[in-house]
Structure formats: C-alpha cells, structure tokens
Simulated assay, not measured.
Amino acid sequence: MTEAIPNPKSSKLAKNRLYLDCYKYMQSEKLALPTIPDVSVKIRRAINEPKANSSRIARVVQIDPSITARLIKISNSPLYRGRRKIESCPEAITRLGLKAAQDIITVFALKAVFNAKTGIIRRKMQELWSHSSHVAAISAVLAHKTPGFDPDRAMLAGLIHDIGIVPILGYADRQPDILASPTDLAETVKELRSEIGVQIIRRWDFPTDFEDVVNHAENWYRDSGPQATYADIVMISQLHSFIGKVDIKKMPKMDELPAYKKLAAGNLDADLSINILDQVKDEIEHVRAMLS
C-alpha cells in the first residue's frame, strides 16, 4: 500500500509534479541523496585511527593533487597563516590540525556533488555551488573574526546550508520533462529543502548543530538563546551574500536580527561595524577563489 501524500498547502502545489514526486520519495526514504565524496570518507577513517598523524593523513590526501594543492594554499591564507610559508601537505595538515584539515578537505571534495547531466539543471547546480561557496567563504572569514568559532567548521556549515536542494535538482535532472515551469522548482525547493537537507546531514554523520544551519539559514528573526551559533554565522553570511543581488527592501535590516546582535555583543572585536565584512572582502574573495 503506497503512502498517501498529505493535502498540498495550495492548489499550486497540487499541480506541481516535481514537488509531489520528491515529497513521496522523501517520505519513503527512496529519494536519491548525494553520497559524501570518497576522499572525505577516507580522510575521516584515517583521522580516527589510533596512530593518526599528519604524515599518515597526508599520504591519503595526496592521492588527489587538486585537493593537496588547495590544502597547502589555504594553510598559507590569512585564515591560518603562520610565520613561514607552508610548502608540503604534511606541513599544511600540521598547521591546520587534523580536525580542521578534515573539514577543509570535505569542503573541497563536495564540489563533485553539485553536478548534473542536462544543461538547465547543470546551470542550476553551478548557481547553487556559486552561492553556497560564497556563503562558505563569508562564514569562514566571519568565524575567523569571532572568538569561539572555527573558520573551517564555519566554512563547511556555510557550504551545506542549501544541500537539501541538490537531490531536488538531481531528480529533475533524471526527469527533465517534469519541470513544467521555473515556479515548480522554486516551490519545491521552498517546501522541501530543509527536510531533505536534514536527511543528508544525518546520512553523512555531520555535527548535529548543522541541522540548525540547514533549518534556519533564512529564519532571520530566530533567537536560539544567548550564545551565538554556527547557524547564526551562516545566516548573517547568507544575508551579506545577497547584497547587490537581491532587492534590499525585501531583506531584513542586519542590525535588527538576533543573530547579528549576539555576534556583535560579546563575540566580535570592539571595532565591529555593520560593514565589517566589507572591510575584509579581499579575504572573502581569496577563500572563495580557492573553493572555485
């Protein structure tokens, strides 16, 4: 017996085949979720070994020359830069630390998830990657300026905040005739991105607080308590990423948001201004370029 789909919230959704199909497969746990890239799995396994060290981890990382090069490059970036230039993979991992290296390698590897065969969906995936990597770069720099947060973890949080959209695009890629109009995709994303995103976070065994990142990336007036969280970092980063792209009149004022107030009150430097991210735009673009 097939599971009945609840009454759609509007007559529009009742006519949206993409929504109805994705919802049905999501509920039955048959929606094809992306798998975490193999290199990330290998790194996680290697780091959890009792004798894990930088040299052992480097041997695994160096299987992928592209990730190796970017790991060295980010270890020399303003986020992690030390007194001397890093020139080898083991040195980069030593500077970053094993856990940070794992998060960063996962960030670099995740680009492979944002892929499609058909032209229209491939462009949508590229747009999603561009947006997600921009938010990831801002999150990393904002976390770097905020005591108590790790740039690498914030970067990963920023990158996966919209991960729930990937399976929706993936389904549309396999069923190209199902998209009757761009509105169908927008409606489906709006209704299902969070639920599907949480399924992926759990499948990938990511930190549980990343579920809040997925659920509340655009819940602008949410107040989770007195302490700022990675969800707050990603929310403010995403709002900043919209500058120049979205009608400012449709966006909330940043300094009115609980997330911003928490970051400003006790976690950021005293010279904080609402334009702090404008002041470090070169750092943001540097990180963004590495992700691209």
Rank of each mutant, 00 (worst) to 15 (best):
M235P: 06
R222K: 13
A69D: 14
V234T: 02
V60H: 03
V135N: 01
A136K: 02
L268A: 02
A265E: 08
L20G: 03
S40P: 05
A265W: 11
E285K: 04
K124R: 11
E3M: 06
Y230L: 09
G148A: 12
S181I: 00
W129K: 03
I200P: 03
A143D: 00
E187K: 03
S28F: 01
R222S: 13
M254D: 06
I200A: 04
K9A: 08
H286F: 09
G82F: 09
D269C: 13
E91V: 07
N215M: 13
L291A: 00
N16E: 01
A180V: 00
D209G: 12
D173M: 13
P226L: 05
S28V: 04
L33A: 05
G148F: 14
R81D: 07
F149M: 04
E256Y: 09
A137E: 09
I168P: 00
Q199W: 13
I163W: 02
P147T: 14
A180R: 15
A100Y: 02
S292L: 06
A112K: 14
E3T: 08
S28N: 07
I74M: 01
K24A: 08
R222F: 13
D212E: 15
I36H: 14
L13W: 08
I196K: 07
L71E: 02
G82L: 11
V280A: 02
R174M: 06
T35N: 13
L192C: 08
P65V: 11
P90R: 08
L263N: 00
S75I: 14
P176T: 11
N53T: 01
H286A: 07
T106Y: 02
N16Y: 02
N53E: 00
R56N: 14
L263I: 06
L169V: 10
V234H: 01
V61H: 04
L263W: 01
L33G: 02
L110G: 04
T68F: 10
N53Q: 09
V135P: 01
A52I: 03
V60C: 05
I248Y: 10
L159C: 05
D152E: 13
A143I: 02
K51E: 15
